[in-house]
Amino acid sequence: MRTRLVDLVERFGGQLVGAPDIEVSAIAPLDRAGASDITFLSNSKLRALAAQSQAAAIILAPQDDPVVAATYEGARIVTANPYAYFARTAQYFVSLKEVASAPGIHPTAVVHESARVDPTACIGAHATVEADAVIKPRAVIDAGCYIGREAVVGEGTHFFANVTFHARCIIGARGIVHSGAVIGGDGFGFAPDGGAYIKIPQTGRVVIGDDVDIGSNTTVDRGALDDTVIEDGVKLDNQIQIGHGCHIGAHTAMAGCVGVAGSARIGRYCTIGGAAMINGHIEIADNVHVVAGTLVPNSITEPGHYAGFYPVGSKAAWERGAAILRNLPALREKVRALEKRLNTLTEEKH
């Protein structure tokens, strides 16, 4: 399916430079885009590559346009945020080819008689919807999903195959939960008693807002007493662990393999890099950006960028550095002794 550039601009805005009736059928990278493609430039370091692109049109920022236009012969859509424009354009192209899920309940699905499934919702093959669950309009529950009793799935939310959504959990509108995710499993709560552990019942819920994306095999534990809360617009990558009683602020994004221990509170508009570890019972302010692989043991009260890891090096260099680190306490004492001796000599001289 082909789309005219003028139609894209009418839909998403931006300034079109070039023939409005040019048609494009797909989005492609700068170096592979052809005569029927539209591409985008979001990194000014790639201006030279963009200027030589063979794409029919390019999406770019005002500051990049004069440089690219000097040699690029295709049409241009000039916009303040080319990356966001690309995302919206990509969504539009996907929607043109997307086959909508047919509303209704598959014959092999098991839906409890007390569950409330909107007629416009789709329940896939071998899915299970337990008692008193609510599936709202245009929600899509793909094959093999499990929806626990009294759970609520919001309007237009899509569960991909084999999502587990336990009892009393709630997710808002337009959510996306990918395969293998488990929402509302028990938190890791045990009380030590004489060398053994006594399980603490996990009686809270998971409450998820609107426009939340949750990646494959990510787990969000229910609260022990209070709810685990994921606010609007949060984006969680694959294989993330959110512990019981956590609170994740709106529009925070986490990359793959992040671990958040129980009762941590993370603010709004934060980004957490892949494999970062967030300690439990701490608070992280709004607009905090944590670099991948960082351990956050204590609360962060000020916005900004934070990192805490040792840069990779050769094995020999690492071993030398480790040996130095082991000797730092002794070296510290030697420096203190030398400072004390130096002060004594200075006093004697005067």
Results as ranks from 00 to 15, higher is better:
25 S>Q: 06
27 I>T: 07
28 A>Q: 00
28 A>W: 01
29 P>C: 15
30 L>Q: 10
30 L>K: 09
30 L>M: 13
30 L>N: 06
33 A>V: 07
33 A>T: 04
33 A>P: 01
35 A>P: 12
36 S>L: 04
36 S>M: 11
37 D>C: 11
37 D>W: 01
38 I>W: 05
39 T>L: 03
39 T>R: 06
39 T>M: 09
40 F>V: 05
40 F>H: 00
41 L>T: 01
43 N>G: 02
43 N>L: 10
45 K>H: 15
46 L>N: 05
47 R>V: 14
48 A>M: 10
49 L>N: 02
49 L>M: 15
49 L>D: 03
50 A>S: 13
50 A>W: 06
50 A>F: 00
50 A>L: 01
51 A>N: 05
52 Q>F: 06
52 Q>G: 11
53 S>N: 11
54 Q>I: 00
55 A>F: 14
55 A>I: 08
55 A>E: 00
56 A>F: 15
56 A>Q: 03
56 A>S: 07
57 A>Q: 04
57 A>V: 05
57 A>F: 00
58 I>E: 00
60 L>N: 01
60 L>V: 09
60 L>G: 01
61 A>E: 10
61 A>H: 00
62 P>T: 15
62 P>V: 09
62 P>C: 05
63 Q>K: 14
63 Q>T: 14
63 Q>Y: 13
63 Q>N: 14
63 Q>A: 12
63 Q>W: 14
64 D>A: 07
65 D>S: 12
66 P>W: 15
66 P>T: 13
66 P>A: 12
66 P>G: 13
67 V>T: 08
68 V>F: 05
68 V>Y: 04
70 A>L: 15
70 A>H: 01
70 A>I: 06
71 T>N: 11
71 T>F: 15
73 E>I: 07
73 E>Y: 09
75 A>W: 03
75 A>C: 01
76 R>H: 12
76 R>C: 00
76 R>I: 02
76 R>L: 04
77 I>W: 02
77 I>C: 10
77 I>A: 09
77 I>Y: 00
78 V>Y: 03
79 T>C: 06
79 T>L: 05
80 A>T: 15
80 A>E: 15
80 A>P: 09
80 A>C: 11
80 A>H: 06
81 N>V: 12
82 P>Q: 08
82 P>C: 08
82 P>E: 09
83 Y>H: 14
85 Y>K: 02
85 Y>M: 10
85 Y>A: 07
85 Y>Q: 09
86 F>Q: 11
88 R>T: 02
88 R>Y: 07
89 T>I: 01
90 A>F: 00
90 A>R: 03
90 A>H: 07
91 Q>C: 11
91 Q>E: 13
91 Q>H: 14
91 Q>A: 12
93 F>T: 12
93 F>V: 11
95 S>K: 07
95 S>R: 10
96 L>S: 13
97 K>S: 10
97 K>R: 08
98 E>K: 04
99 V>F: 08
99 V>G: 03
101 S>C: 09
101 S>G: 04
101 S>E: 03
